[in-house]
Amino acid sequence: MSFDNLDTLYRQVIMDHYKNPRNRGALDNDSLTIDMNNPTCGDRIQLHLQIEDGKVEDAKFEGEGCSISLSSASMMTQAIKGKSVDEALSLSKIFSDMMLGENPNEDDIDLGDIEALQGVSKFPARIKCATLAWKAMEKGIDEQK
């Protein structure tokens, strides 16, 4: 039996982020904390953001979930660190478009590792796993405003 189709979902770089998550842990008390869960499956994330002068100074996450949700959280925190809030939000928009099957390369932005999650769009049942951390980030930025 061939797992070619699955390999587009479980790319090496995703598994690397799952096994060795970046930015996992808590931030200082003065940071912004957002809890988000996926009520249909039990995945939960706690995202810690430190936003100063419209810039994401630091981002960390804690939580439990499947390889897709945790690797996406790891990649997201990596991607938004040091970016302006507007840049973070536009990355989030690109990501959600990517989940809807749009090709992110047309946007001429270097997505780095995030691009590896493109295959999730072919597994509709897993899209919510991938977007959980991004939704949390959007919510946090929204609350900050």
């Binding site: 979902l9 499956c41 979930g65 499947c66 390889s67 049942a125």
Partner: peptide, 25 residues
């Protein structure tokens, strides 16, 4: 292996199982 991941790989082999908290948190 997280049950979601297991369920996705089972589905790729035609097998439908439930994964999650089964409405019993």
């Amino acid at each position: 292996v997280h049950p979601h991941d297991a369920a996705t790989v089972l589905d790729s082999q035609g097998i439908a199982v439930r994964a999650g908290h089964h409405c019993a948190q």
